[in-house]
Amino acid sequence: MSSDNSAQLSRRQFITGAAAAVAGLTIAPGVFLLKPAEAAQNPDGPRWGLLIDTSKCADGCTACVRACHEENGVRSLGRPETDAQWIRKVNLTDRATGHQHSLPVMCQHCENPPCVDVCPTHASFIRPDGVVLVDKHTCIGCRYCMMACPYKARSFIHEALTDQKPHAPRGKGTVESCTLCVHRIDRGERTTACVEACNRDGHQAMTFGDLHDPDSEISQRLRNYGSTTIRADLRLNPAVRYQGI
């Protein structure tokens, strides 16, 4: 079964620390290693992902959060416990050393997404390019996906919304999360609102790109420097990877 397969592979990445070329390893290691030049036209198509270098992520900066919520029309309604958040800044303090740093967390676009597994209606789905989305027409608002997501990536819409962006339909009684700016991907753009904002502010902490393309910036960075995923033990192989945790 494919999930067993990728679980093994992600264990290998985990153990060797060779996180390079995530995508190639996941799907077809042999082909990938022998013919790197052709892999750009990977028969599996692209898999979009993000790389976040937490050493460059500035404490207190929320540029990515603001940009995402602006881009997708996510607004606070003054009720923090029920307000939607597609991306948030998480502050970490190492209990052993007291070292502090912070990093953005959004939907991790898992390759084996628990949210998709548990969704009774297939409203949670994963596209061939790895983007995990919620179909707002078939979501019944059961919130089982929120129970299942290990990253607390999803929000339930607790009240009626106005002024939505045409490219990001949202609605009371359904669940939503980071779309990896799928509207941009589908327009052919190769960046997301959060990455753009981070770069604009000069932090350069986030990289967006095709994990299946060995020549992409993200793949090269992943190959040359170590990286990890949050809760790698769950072997969900997220498309969002981190450096410096």
């Binding site: 923090p80 416990e81 948030r88 800044k89 998480v90 303090t93 209990r95 967390v105 290990p150």
Partner: peptide, 13 residues
């Protein structure tokens, strides 16, 4: 989410 770390955020992490 991060074993060994204390965690905080505006999202009640």
């Amino acid at each position: 989410m991060f074993p060994g770390y204390d965690m905080s955020s505006s999202f009640f992490d």
